[in-house]
Design a protein around this nucleic acid. Structure first.
Length: 281
DNA sequence: AACACCCGCAACCGCACTATA
DNA sequence: GTATAGTGCGGTTGCGGGTGT
């Protein structure tokens, strides 16, 4: 007997989520918490399957999500973790508060893989590639024909590709700046921030302080906006603070949310926050 | 301007794993 | 021990924007 599908797919909506659907899902979860994903679409009035709702919440709507480009430190950490753990994205994501496994997987497949190849490393084994990658400019320097040792050849190869990589990084940074500018233009568009209104109202009812605030971040292609909370910012930026202070900020936020939202019988906000593996000392 | 191609990312799919009856 | 439900996970797909011709 085979496994049954997670839901009846007949009549269910697929594809990109609309702002209205996001609102419904977010309002439902904020008011009721997460108990059973299969029931969520029915109770929230969505024509989606539970799996789809779960994915949307985890990868996009979750309050503690961190958006934006990966920093160099994060990329280095990602490469090291991948060398240790392989394609176990959820395990890797556990080391990046606010990042989802999907986001990390996509970043790996679209950026890091290329970066490693440019450095002459095999993305799956993390070991030096002994042959030139196809993308390598064979007319640049005839290193392979030289009489130097393999190690020297690898070093020479890396110097050449490092320059290329530096160039790429500079180009990327320029592009990033442009994207940020575009985003700030988008931010001024009222229609894009409807979804944030609910959170803002929620925030206004709480004395959360300046270290925690909702932000609109890089727009997604599917529906043109993205909502994110900078909860992680307060925790990450206050690394110099004593851990008790960090925990104090976090606990205040948790207490405030718990006092406003009815979590009875469902996951508490503590549980939801733990999706992001926030540091608790 | 129009078209083709490339790339990044959100979303989907199907299998695996765990809990429970 | 077995069947089933619920959820997690990793691979893959396809849309849409950007870029090149």
């Amino acid at each position: 007997m085979g496994r049954k599908p997670c839901c009846e797919k007949v009549g269910l909506k697929r594809g990109p989520w609309t702002i209205d659907e996001d609102n419904k899902l977010m309002n439902f979860i904020l008011n009721n918490g997460i108990h059973c994903w299969r029931l969520v679409p029915t109770l929230a009035g969505l024509m989606r399957c539970g799996k789809s709702c779960r994915l949307r919440w985890i990868n996009y709507l979750r309050p503690d999500l961190k958006r934006g480009a990966f920093s160099e430190v994060e990329e280095d950490q990602l490469i090291q973790l991948h060398a240790r753990l392989g394609n176990r994205w959820s395990r890797i994501a556990a080391h990046f508060p606010g990042r989802t496994d999907n986001e990390i997987k996509n970043h790996w497949n679209t950026r890091i893989k290329k970066k490693l190849k440019l450095l002459g490393l095999d993305p799956s084994t993390h070991k030096p590639i002994t042959q030139y990658p196809k993308s390598f400019d064979m007319e640049a320097e005839p290193i392979a024909e030289s009489s130097c040792s393999l190690r020297e050849q690898e070093n020479n190869f890396n110097v050449v590709t490092f320059d290329k990589q530096q160039q790429q990084i500079e180009e990327t940074l320029g592009l990033q700046k442009k994207q940020d500018q575009d985003f700030h233009e988008l931010h001024s568009n009222e229609s894009r921030v409807n979804l944030s209104h609910g959170y803002e109202v929620l925030w206004e009812t709480m004395d959360v302080g300046s270290e925690l605030y909702p932000t609109i971040t890089n727009p997604s292609k599917s529906n043109g906006y993205s909502l994110s909370f900078s909860l992680d910012v307060s925790l990450n930026q206050s690394m110099d603070e004593p851990s008790s202070l960090q925990e104090n900020s976090r606990q205040r936020w948790v207490d405030n949310v718990d006092s406003v939202l009815p979590w009875d019988g469902f996951l508490t906000i503590e549980d939801i926050l733990s999706f992001g593996k926030l540091p608790v000392n």
